[in-house]
């Protein structure tokens, strides 16, 4: 088991290098000179531009820029963004906010998705099942920004139950509405996954055996049906955490959440290579780690699964 985990950690190294290289190259290839853009419509002062280019290594060829960036990572100094602030500090500000948002969305979609999916699966074909199925179809069908604006306008502006945008501290109550919007799409998937999986397991031999043994309905559902049905759901949720963190750009924009998506979007537009790469790299690492966590959870849910070493 520990060899397995170690191996997985070692795999992170090539993933990390590959991701940084690829993303750095993409940002490097973006057309336009970010320093010229800093001047706006105003005349470009070449002396100032040259000085700034040097400061951000933009006068170097691609490989040199990339190596300098790698060096800065290993010295734990990620360099500076265009406003002269250490990128490490920027990451420290935006990641906690987005992590809070993504985890809240994950809890929302996991809890409601699994509960509704379980009930729907157990009552296959009944009214509740049909209702949640239709509802989930609608949610999947509507783009997230439409849902976002709709909820922001009705709940935030017209009903006044929540503020339309998050406050400066981005506290947990502030983030409830954005988290629901962010998690709504995945909620529908979790619901449908759980439902299908529950229906499948209800007909499994071991469930019949358990019922025949005289176990209570509750125990059958909890131990034999639910636990076995969760494997595909956990796989989905694990991958979804990474997707929620990186994919919150639209939701963060609508609710003005000062998180990763917002900063990343601005950095891409202004061509701040090191900022973009640093943010994306952390996202990639989170993605890898959450997948590792999911793989480890499999063994707990289904002891038949073994990790080769």
């Amino acid at each position: 088991m520990s060899t397995y985990i170690l191996k997985r950690f070692l795999q992170l190294i090539p993933v990390f290098l590959g991701a940084t290289l690829l993303v750095y190259f993409l940002v490097f290839s973006l057309p336009g000179d970010p320093i010229v853009a800093l001047f706006g419509d105003k005349p470009v002062n070449e002396a100032v531009a040259a000085k700034l280019r040097m400061q951000y290594h933009l006068d170097q060829p691609f490989w040199m820029q990339y190596l300098l960036y790698l060096k800065s990572i290993f010295t734990f100094d990620l360099g500076q963004d265009f406003s002269g602030r250490p990128i490490a500090a920027v990451l420290g500000e935006v990641f906690p906010v987005t992590a809070r948002l993504a985890i809240m969305a994950l809890i929302f979609e996991a809890f409601f998705g699994i509960v509704f999916g379980l009930i729907a699966g157990l009552r296959k074909g009944k009214l509740f099942d049909a209702t949640v199925l239709i509802f989930s179809l609608i949610v999947i069908g509507i783009p997230i920004f439409v849902l976002g604006f709709l909820l922001q306008f009705t709940i935030g502006v017209q009903l006044g139950w929540a503020k339309p945008t998050v406050s400066s501290a981005a506290t947990i109550p502030d983030l409830i509405l954005p988290a629901i919007v962010l998690g709504l799409g995945s909620f529908a998937y979790v619901l449908r996954l759980t439902r299908t999986s529950v229906i499948e397991n209800m007909n499994a031999d071991y469930v019949r055996t358990a019922t025949a043994k005289g176990l209570s309905r509750f125990q059958v559902v909890r131990v034999h049906i639910l636990r076995n049905s969760l494997i595909p759901v956990i796989t989905f949720l694990g991958a979804d955490l990474g997707a929620l963190m990186g994919g919150a750009i639209v939701t963060e924009g609508i609710f003005n959440v000062p998180g990763v998506g917002n900063r990343l979007y601005r950095a891409v537009l202004s061509g701040e290579g090191p900022t973009v790469v640093s943010i994306v790299t952390v996202l990639v690492l989170i993605y890898c780690l959450s997948n590792l966590l999911v793989d480890l959870l499999y063994g707990w849910l289904d002891p038949r699964i073994r990790y080769d070493s």
């Binding site: 604006f149 922001q152 306008f153 935030g156 502006v157 006044g160 503020k163 339309p164 945008t165 400066s168 963060e252 924009g253 609508i254 609710f255 003005n256 000062p258 917002n262 979007y265 601005r266």
Partner: peptide, 18 residues
């Protein structure tokens, strides 16, 4: 000065007196 990523969300805040 509250920093907004887009004017649309600022407008929603204005309408709700935030």
């Amino acid at each position: 000065f509250k920093i907004y990523q887009n004017d649309d969300s600022a407008y929603q805040d204005l309408m709700s007196n935030n």
